[in-house]
Amino acid sequence: MLKLTFLGTSAGVPTKQRNVTALAIECLNPYLIGSIRQQDKNKSNNKNSKSRPWLLIDCGEGTQHQLLHTKLSLHQLAVICITHVHGDHCYGLPGLLASAAMSGRREPLTLIAPKAIATLLDAVILTTELHLPFAINFMTIEDLLSEPINQNKVTIRLDNQHQLEIDITPLSHRVASYGFGITQTITRRSLNTDKLIADSIQASALWGKLQQGEDVMTDDGRMLRSVDYVDNEISQTRAVIAGDNDTPERLKAAVVGADVLVHEATYTSDVLAKIQAKNPDFDPMHSSAQLLGRFAEQVGVRNLIMTHFSARYQSFDNPTSSTPNMAHIRLESESVYQGNLWLAHDFAQYMVNGSADLADLAGETESGSVQYLGSARDHNN
């Protein structure tokens, strides 16, 4: 299960209601921590919620301030992915790293980003005497895409039953921009106790060793193979998070099997056309709500979350208003897209369930793999 918290949903510049781009993704294993929903409702139980590893996709200016309104801790941040070098996606990175250092973080941190981000950090470290007491495992996107073996994929092992695979898709924007596919794989070993009892193997420490994958010898000399008594269940959840991109078709292969697509819808199609006509020499190279919705419909994306809205669009939803607002984005999307659609706002949270068995553990039904949870600010009160 992946829990998405939008920390910024504005394009280019912040507004009074929206900060610039950042998205937190918590990696939840319900087999280990029980009912996620119940823990989130129990506001006095913060221990487990603060021990969940999470990823940060983009880090616009002010992201660390947004985090203060959530339960997310920089000590549990496992990976930062930067889609491209425009400031509304990366200007907050040096400050966030500095705050992590000052809060006592010592564990290494993985950073997946364009090479230019290393130049940015080097300059900040040199000119501001920034000291980071933790190692940064910097993986440049350009190098990852050029590797002949396992190209464009990074595997992050959270524990022996829980891992992430991050794959990278080049997109189309004014600078090199990328999309990240986040695939969470959870393996659960279930001990077949009925078979053990039927084979006259009573409960003992041997059971635990078998469940951990060890072959064991009984007191009467019988060799027991773990594979004969343990069932492995594998569940996956996949989210695709796109950077700025004017050609959604670039993600056609990436969204196959995805449970949700998160993609920019900076403008409505008429506003985008006016911007392009006004200055033919400058194309902002963003997607419109119509362009994105049509792509999602054509390739069968079941769940679509739009974000990165131009500051001209106000946060209210009123289709009759002459002031550009979320209703105009929403209606244009709904005219071409029939799937489940959400327009993200700052602190909006969504639970993404990739498998029916995991969904059942969280009290979900099979009616949809994405559920809107409300605002992180409300949950953090």
Rank of each mutant, 00 (worst) to 15 (best):
F6Q: 02
L7T: 13
V20A: 04
A24N: 03
I25P: 12
I25T: 14
E26S: 11
C27D: 15
C27F: 02
N29E: 13
I33H: 11
G34C: 04
S35R: 09
I36S: 06
K41D: 10
K41R: 12
R52P: 03
P53N: 08
L56C: 00
D58R: 08
D58M: 01
D58G: 01
G60M: 04
E61R: 10
E61P: 00
G62S: 03
L67Q: 08
L68I: 03
K71T: 04
L72M: 13
S73A: 08
C81V: 03
H84P: 05
V85C: 07
H86F: 10
D88F: 14
C90S: 14
G92Y: 11
L93S: 06
P94E: 07
G95D: 07
L97S: 09
S99R: 15
M102H: 03
P108H: 05
A113H: 01
A118Q: 12
D122Y: 02
A123T: 09
I125R: 02
I125F: 00
T128C: 09
N137T: 09
M139A: 11
E142C: 10
L145N: 05
E147L: 03
Q151N: 14
T155W: 00
I156C: 05
E165N: 13
I166K: 01
I166H: 06
D167S: 15
D167W: 03
T169Q: 10
L171Q: 06
S172Q: 08
S177E: 08
I186Y: 06
D194N: 10
D199E: 12
S200Y: 11
I201Q: 13
S204F: 12
A205C: 04
L206C: 02
K209A: 11
G213H: 04
E214D: 10
M217P: 00
G221P: 11
D228V: 00
N232V: 01
N232D: 07
Q236H: 06
Q236A: 06
T237C: 10
N245V: 03
V256Q: 13
L261M: 04
E264M: 11
A265T: 06
T266F: 12
D270G: 00
L272E: 11
K278E: 14
D281F: 09
P284E: 03
H286E: 07
A289P: 12
Q290K: 15
G293C: 05
A296H: 09
R312G: 06
Y313C: 00
F316H: 15
P319Y: 13
A327D: 15
R330L: 14
S333Y: 02
E334M: 11
E334W: 07
S335T: 07
Y337M: 15
L341K: 15
W342I: 03
A344G: 08
M351H: 14
D357S: 13
G368N: 08
G368E: 02
S369V: 00
V370M: 09
V370I: 09
Q371W: 01
Y372I: 01
R377I: 11
N380E: 14
N381P: 12
